[in-house]
Amino acid sequence: MNALANLSSHIARSPGDPKIVRSGPSSLSGADRLARALGWFSIGLGIVEVIAPGAITRTLGLQGKESLVRAYGVREIASAIPTLSFDKQVGLVSRVAGDLLDVATLAPALRPENPKRDNAAIAMALIAGITLLDIAAVTAVSATHSAGKGRRRDYSDRSGFPKGKEASRGLARESFQTPRDMRADLAPRPRLEAIEG
């Protein structure tokens, strides 16, 4: 415990460092925030599906599909990981695919003979809403972070050599020597050159 307390005190900011007086706008866009919310929703739903699949199947009239619900829980958590990362598109696309699987799995529960049909209908409406949010998030995140945004430019006029690139080759060799501790090329060059003529 002492070691932990010691470690955390070393991560803390030093007292003299500047402190925030007023916070400005974030680099996170609305699309990023939506993706993040969906990622955390995935984690929550996934945990419930893994821990209590029986409660879900009973509520929806899908008894006997507990293993499938648990597997879907694992899928939810797996798609949350990239959704919460900076590769959100991958996670969000996998969420949309998961939504379609959920719809296909829930559809039989809407049959008239299911006594929990009303619950299943509510669940279906929720999934439809989440699917729309997922699609909106994929679209917005892709648009916000597309590398194609803005002008494509050519920098072939930027050599960085005011004296020209040919005149610059080896220019620094005249005045600079590799320090002894960074010499790496210790091969006996004169002998090599003699061999190669």
């Binding site: 494509r152 430019r153 920098y155 006029d157 960085g160 050599f161 610059s168 080759r169 620094a172 060799r173």
Partner: peptide, 29 residues
């Protein structure tokens, strides 16, 4: 890239996938 050229490398090869960055590398030779 510029440092290797200034230090006299016979040939410098630059590896990337973005055209604008490759164009800037080519600009130095």
């Amino acid at each position: 890239i510029r440092s290797a050229i200034l230090l006299g490398a016979e040939q410098v090869v630059a590896i990337d996938c973005l055209p604008e960055r490759l164009s800037m590398a080519e600009a130095a030779g």
